[in-house]
Amino acid sequence: MEEVNLKKDTFKVANRKLKSRLIVGTGKYKNFKETAKAVKESGADMVTVAVRRINVLDKRKPILTDYLNPKKIIYLPNTAGCFTSDEALRTLRLAREMGGWKLVKLEVLGDKKTLYPNMIETIKSTKILVKEGFKVMVYCTDDPLLAKKLEDCGASAIMPLASPIGSGLGLQNKVNISLIIKQSKVPVIVDAGIGTASDATIAMEMGCDGVLINSAIANSKNPIRMARAFKNAVISGRDSYLAGRMKKNYFATPSSPTDGLI
């Protein structure tokens, strides 16, 4: 019975069906081999990737696509490192040219120390990208009003931060994330700041549609095992959310029947 229910729980972003609610980043790994192993163990079918200059002089240097086949796993090009709308647009237009990628992750940063998103530039970019036919998943602050604004501009997914990128501080503003979940008609994916597997479970139990993890896996002592931990954490959290938790009581209720006590 439960198995049937679980199968019905599909996750779609911009009409694309995803098997896993865990999306993983591909940065910060020791090497491509480790990246590929961790991605496989995570069960994710979507990975974020960055766009950078190719090293033209080093002809033998391995590249990401040698290890993660873009035909087998969905590449989600991001605009990491972009601080203006123009930079972000340039990056995503190049990404689209590379292989027709229309589903992209937009992030326009505002401050080098916190890597906090610049929402003014982010909203501006979202509008332009949507007009150009992109499906935009948007990294954003946890402000419900701005999240709503992004949805109104045509964002395909809202991706509020749990805490600053790479900080591992976990969910710092659960109330705001909950407000965003409750109001959004597009998927809400917690992006950035998750520190460990239980953080992902909590986000999923709150009703997030998915989580995006990079540093928490790549910077752990054993990224392959941590990738698996996150896979299970996300499945657990989703199941727990769908199952619906019990009510909290201030006093005890016995678990064993009180009738027939000897």
Binding site: G25, G27, Y29, I54, I63, L64, G166
Partner: peptide, 10 residues
């Protein structure tokens, strides 16, 4: 000329 490709990123 700028030639870009995909690299690992979060």
């Amino acid at each position: 000329l700028e030639v870009v490709h995909f690299i690992g990123g979060g």
